[in-house]
Design a protein around this nucleic acid. Sequence first.
DNA 1: TTGAAAGCGCTACCAC
DNA 2: GTGGTAGCGCTTTCAA
Lengths: 341, 341
Amino acid sequence: MKATIYDVAREAGVSIAAVSQVINGKGKISEERRNEIFAVMERLDYKPSVIAAALTGKKTYTFGLLIPDISNPFFAEIARAVEDRGHQLGYSIFICSTDNNDERVERYLSVLQQKSVDGIIVGTGMDHRDMLQPVLRKSMPVVLVARELPGLNVDTVVIDDYAGGYLAGGHLAGLGHKRIAVLAESAKLVSSRERIRGFREACEEAGLEWDESLVRTNGADLVKDGRRNATDWLAGDNRPTAIFCCNDLLAIGALQAAKERGLRIPADLSIVGFDNTILATATDPPLTTVAQPTGRMGELAVDLLLEQEGSRRESPRRAVLAPELVLRESTAALRGKAPIK
Amino acid sequence: MKATIYDVAREAGVSIAAVSQVINGKGKISEERRNEIFAVMERLDYKPSVIAAALTGKKTYTFGLLIPDISNPFFAEIARAVEDRGHQLGYSIFICSTDNNDERVERYLSVLQQKSVDGIIVGTGMDHRDMLQPVLRKSMPVVLVARELPGLNVDTVVIDDYAGGYLAGGHLAGLGHKRIAVLAESAKLVSSRERIRGFREACEEAGLEWDESLVRTNGADLVKDGRRNATDWLAGDNRPTAIFCCNDLLAIGALQAAKERGLRIPADLSIVGFDNTILATATDPPLTTVAQPTGRMGELAVDLLLEQEGSRRESPRRAVLAPELVLRESTAALRGKAPIK
DNA sequence: TTGAAAGCGCTACCAC
DNA sequence: GTGGTAGCGCTTTCAA
C-alpha cells in the first residue's frame, strides 16, 4: 500500500515531526538526519499526501477551469496555457466543460468547492453572474478569462475586443470592400457586441454605410449556422463582398457556403475570422483572422488568481491584451480595385 | 468563511455524526431531524469537504488524464468524452499535457499520487512503461486509451489500428491508385506501425507493390513535417497519386504541399487522414479520414478504470473498437479510371 | 435513534 | 536539533 509519513519516520528511526520538517524544508534538522530521511522516502517511494496537508490549512494546489467546451480549439488552447503556467507553479487543473449549461455550471461550481480548490478560472460566461456570487462571497479566488461579466467584482483578463473588430474592419475597408456582412456569436456576449462595435466604427470611419441586415448572430452549432446565414446572403443579388466572422468556426461555415456557391476566396469573397485557432491554418485558403494571445491570457489568469490568495483585493484588476491581425490568404482587394494605401 | 460540519451540527442542535449520516444517506435519522439538517446545510451553503472525507478512507472522486497535449484536437475530444463520463459518475478530471516529455510525465505521475487520485487514464505513450510500473505496483487503477504499451499489465481501450489502415488502403487501392505514399507519426508508436501494416496488407491484397521509400515518419510538428515530406514526394517525377496520413494533422501538411505545387485535390492527388477531428471538416476539400470513436473510447476508459477499484483484476482487459472510414471529398478515382466496384 | 470518540496523514507549536 | 501532541473536517464503530 501507499507509504505514510509514519512509515518513513519508523524506518528512519525519527519522529514524524522530523520527517514533516524535511518535506517542507523547514525547521532545523542535521544534514545527516535529513539525508537519511530523504533516502528512506526514496526507498519507500513515499509521496506526501496533499490531501492531508490541505486539511491542516495548507492549500490543495489545485484549481478549476470552467469553459464552455474543452473540445473547442480556442478553449483547448486557453486550457493548455493555464495548465502550463499552473504546472510551472505546482498547481493542477480540473477541467470543467459547461456547454454554457446552467445546471452544469452550478454542479461544477459546487464540486470545485467541495474539493477545496485554491481558485477558479472562468472562461464560460453568459448569465452566470448569479452563480458566481456565492463563491465570491466565500472569498474563493476567481478570475475571468476571455469573457466578461460586467457588474461582477472580479479580476478579468480579456483582449480588447473592440480593437479586434476595428482591426478586421479597417483591413476589409482598406481593401476596398463596401458591402461587408458580419457573423457573430450570441448577442448576449459582450465580446461579440464589442467586436461588432469596433468593426462598425472602422467601417464608418472609412465612409461605409452600416447595414444592420448584414449582421447575424448564431446559435449552438457555429459552423452550420454560419454556413446557413452566409448562404442566405450570398444567394441575394446584392451580395456582400466580404464577411467578418466573430470566430474561426463561423468563418469555416462561411467558407463552406462560399464554396458551395462556386465563389472563389478571396477573389470573389473575402473572409476574416477571429481567434486564430489551429483551424485557421487548416482551411483553404488559410484564414486571415484576428488572433488572441491565448498563451499570455492563460498565464495572466493564473497569476492574477494566485495574487488573490490571502489578501482579498479591494478593487478588481482588469488585464486587457491587444489582439493582432494575422494576414493569410482569405482576404483580397475588391476585384479590380487596388487596396487603399 | 466556509461552513464545516460542526457549524451545521451546532446550528441544527445535533451531533456531527448525525450530520454526517444525513450527508451520506446512511444510518437512521428521523425524517424530521433529517429535513431540519438539510435546511441548515442549505442555509449555510455548506459543502461537505471531499478532502476531509478522503482522509478517512473514502475516495477523492478525482482522476488524472495524461495526454500528449490538450490543444491537439484529437486529445481534446478524448478529454471531453472522459470528462463527460466522469462528470456523470461524480468524478473530476485533472488534465495533464505531457508533450511526451519524460520529465513532465514523471512529475505529473508523482503529483497525481500526492493528490490521491482514484485512478489515471493514460493516452500518452512511447516509452513510459517504466514510469508506470511503480504506480501500478501501488495498485493505483490505470487504463490506457488510444495508445498501447505492450508488456504492461493494464486495461486498454484502443481502436483496431490495423483495420483502420486496412480501410484506408482498401479505399485508395479500390480507387485505382498504384503509387501510394504513407505519412506516419513516430515509428515507436504501435498504433502507427499497425496502421501501416493494415494499409500495406490492403494494398498488397490489391496487387500493389510495396515501396518502402514511400513511407516516412514525422516528428514533433506534424503539419510542418508532413508538408515537407509530401513536398519531397510530389516534386519527384514518379510522384504518388495518393497519400495515406496516419492522422489529420499530417494530412493538412500534405494538403498544403499539394496546393503549393498546384495539384488539385482529389483530381490530381487523393489524401486520406486519420482521427476524424474537427480539422477534417475545415479543410478544403473536406478530408476523407478514418474515424476513431472518441466518445465511446473516453466512456469506456472511465468505466474500466472504475471497475478496477478495490478488486485488482487478474488479467487486464482490452477493449478494441472499430474504426470507420468517413468518406468526404479528398479522394477520387485515379484520373480517367473508374473506381473498382 | 443518537452521540461520543477514535482515527485518517500531516503541520505547527511548544518543550525538552 | 528533535520529538510530543493538538488539531484540520469528516467517517465510523460502539454505547447509550
